[in-house]
Design a protein around this nucleic acid. Structure first.
Lengths: 366, 366
DNA sequence: TTGTATGCGTTATCAC
DNA sequence: GTGATAACGCATACAA
């Protein structure tokens, strides 16, 4: 015990040296110590019955030799490689990066390594990556995409290891998929606008080919309905995920006859940014004239918007973390949960709704 | 040969099935075929002298059983794991994502898997990740950061496997570092502005604590000098990497007495975006009144800027790809190259310099 | 042309 | 307390 502490301390002391010597095997340690390899194994793993002196001596020698057990050999024996595969499909990075981070964090803090695979939206690549992962005997696999309605059609039920889907769906009914809560995220956004005193809330979103767009529209509708508010004419507007579309849609909204909205719930921060720019250039003030909520909480965009953009965060990093921990659980105890697990999203309040000034006495963060 | 083709075809036919059965070993195949395991090994690896009939029969059985050789066992024997470690340090993703993609592409197309490690700017995490990688017997390691002057102080000279640094530096003089060409990128940017007929070119950049900022300023100076142009008063301006700073710096530049610049070379696309917004709001037209070049070629920003922003691309993806291929070479033949290898950057022309309309007869892309 | 034996680096089960 | 020995799954030198 104390010995181990000392070794650890010694290792930290010369902190810029990693594994000073090239890999020694358990045989080398045994030879140096003048004992058998089984004794070394026991000493190093704190198992069996050994004299304390022997144990310490062996540990010290192993340390001096920079001995690290060969995990390949360990894995071969234990039938567990302490590694998992992460197959991503996002060429772009905005969505898979936080997921990857979350997964990596969960894994590495449990001493499990992560193989990074880029499917690049190519089914052939996906398949070859998966076969490679299987050949490497990973303990589990996480498949992730950049939109919730992306379906993986490969049948992975018989590969004998747990598989998890993140921000994606599977054809297998017994698969577990982690998904963001687009529905409630939208509700939260609109409720916040209502709480800020807005009554004519429009919605500008992305393409209807995205399931997320449907869900967000549904949440938008529900929140308005529960408050007894009408959907402004011309809303919701569906387009593409770009600033330009946000700009254009806002122009449309404010040039058509009739009453103008006093708030816009935007389907993405990019759209929100375009909306904000358009409003400013039309001489309208955010949030005084029009309040804004975005979606994604893409810090770099939301924080650069003038005024800074209140947004819904899907908590993708947390989703990745949960995916990692859940997979680890399944590796140990086998898969149990199936279907879709929804990860709550949250509201990140910035300036675009005037909430802070409105209720400067009360800080709310849901 | 034909046999193999047929097998391959058969595998593709039921394309959504990956490894139909759970892992069979070489013994299972041998038992099924009524031969010894060594015969199976030879048959599957196209080695030794076997009757063609035997070879084909074994292959077919192996295929039917869904046999995949256990790479752990192979690696143990061959002393080569066909995997490498990629230790990243970018919590944010903008810079390391393309590098990771490039590395992954290079590796996976050579049947080498990539372990993803996030150092998270924590030396302890870095060290523990590295030890884990070594224990997993990776064949090589790539260390990457998000700025060229980030130094890795860990001494990795004696770990016995090749190590490469990307967008980062090492304390070891015999290490190989891949770096972007900030100097020439800046020169190219300014030369382009000059070619567009600009004469009073200012430079707004990030913090002087970044080596990249120094190099870009140097390139800016050199390009002006070689054209016999003076540096406008107040330029270069150093601040932070944000839109807000670009906006503010532009305000400063255009409110001070004296002649105004007719072009601005921006140290990042974020800065460029702030500059563009500021100019528009001051009633100045880009590119007619002021031409703009950014840096990073961050598509999502550059394409959303009005007008779209011409920018310098550091070609990080290519840098990652080269890093991957170079590491593979070093794994095979041992390290040779040391020092810094500079990856050329390139100019991506959009609208902010008016180049297209200026020389609509000639398309130039350096 | 095929089979036997050995070893890769570990851990675990048994003797001693 | 300590040390042989047998796996783990595969490849290969050598025998047959």
């Amino acid at each position: 015990m104390t010995d181990q502490m000392d070794d650890e301390k010694a290792r930290r002391r010369d902190s810029h040296v990693v594994s000073p010597r090239s890999s020694a095997t358990i045989h080398d340690v045994a030879a140096q110590a003048g004992v058998s390899i089984s004794t070394v194994s026991k000493a190093l793993n704190d198992q069996g019955k050994l004299r304390q002196e022997t144990r310490e001596r062996i540990k010290s020698i192993a340390n001096r030799l920079g001995f690290r057990p060969n995990e390949l050999a360990q894995s071969l024996l234990r039938k567990r490689s302490f590694s998992v595969g992460l197959l991503s499909n996002d060429n772009y990075g905005r969505f898979s990066m936080p997921i990857m981070e979350g997964v990596e964090e969960a894994m590495s803090s449990n001493n499990v390594a992560v193989f990074l695979c880029n499917g690049a939206d190519d089914p052939d690549k996906e398949r070859s990556h998966l076969e490679s992962l299987i050949a490497k005997r990973v303990d589990g696999i996480i498949l992730t995409a950049r939109r919730r309605d992306r379906r993986f059609t490969l049948d992975l039920r018989h590969i004998g290891i747990p598989v998890l889907y993140v921000l994606a769906q599977s054809d297998s009914p017994d698969a577990l998929c982690l998904q963001p809560d687009d529905l409630d995220g939208a509700r939260t956004a609109v409720r916040h606008l209502i709480a800020c005193g807005r009554r004519r809330i429009a919605h500008i979103s992305g393409p209807m080919t995205f399931e997320a767009v449907h869900l967000r529209i549904q949440g938008y509708r529900e929140a308005l309905e529960e408050a007894g508010l009408a959907i402004p004419e011309g809303s919701p507007l569906s387009g593409v995920w770009s600033e330009a579309w946000g700009y254009q849609a806002t122009t449309d909204l404010f040039t058509r006859p009739g009453v103008k909205p006093d708030a816009i719930f935007c389907g993405s921060d990019q759209i929100g940014r375009g909306v904000a720019d358009c409003l400013r250039e039309r001489g309208l003030t955010v949030p005084d004239d029009v309040a804004l909520v975005g979606f994604d909480n893409w810090e770099i965009l939301a924080a650069a918007t003038r005024p800074t953009l209140t947004s819904i965060d899907a908590n993708l990093r947390e989703m990745g973390r949960q995916a990692g921990l859940t997979l680890l659980g399944q590796i140990q105890d086998g898969p149990r949960e199936t279907g879709i697990r929804v990860i709550p999203s949250s509201l990140v309040i910035r300036e675009s709704c005037g909430w802070q000034t409105l209720k400067s006495d009360k800080t709310t963060q849901k």
